[in-house]
Amino acid sequence: MATKEEFFATISQALSANSARAPYPPYADTDLVAKPRVAGGSAEAVFRKNFAAAGGVTVSDLGELKAELARHDTKRGVCDPALSATLGGLDIEWTTTFDRQRPDDYAVGATIASGAIAETGSLILKDRATCDRLAALAPWVHVAVVRRADIFLTLPEALTRLGDDPYVVFATGPSKTADVEGILIQGVHGPGAQIAWLVD
């Protein structure tokens, strides 16, 4: 196996023949924003629109969440311990730990999101804020609780504030595939339904 020093040396040598090295081009983060996607109101309004376009559903209170969950079979669920008091009002049998022996027991998983991105319609899930990666992934329905104040308007804002969390996921709607004849199917290995619950 090559040592790092050998590895770097080969690269330096290969580049030594290259006399015209390209400079880093200047650009503004605003150049990257898809302007039509962020038009039309507050960060929340833009998020709602783009999250819906990606197949996600936004709710604002427990009643709306209940109505949305009623569209799925959600007898049992796994949730962040910090949410169990609030979610207790729903007719769902909650547990706060994900049992790997019974991954398909949970029809719904509820976790805390670290933010959202309006431009792309994405939820930001960070490892330190997520009770268990599997709770946000394995159940058919994933509910992410996100604070309105944590919605970034544009993608560049979110990318330059990723922080030092070891694992960040931008989740943009339910999991999907088009591998079979290009036909879009939602719900492959991850959630088939993605709900964002906006709170203050």
């Binding site: 994900f98 070891p166 694992y167 931008f170 989740a171 088009a178």
Partner: peptide, 24 residues
């Protein structure tokens, strides 16, 4: 690549799982 504006998942990995997390 896919004609989507964004993929369902964009993952940023910068190390082993966070301390005390059960998965990862």
């Amino acid at each position: 690549a896919t004609g989507q504006q964004f993929t369902a998942y964009t993952e940023f990995i910068s190390g082993p799982r966070a301390d005390g997390r059960p998965s990862g």
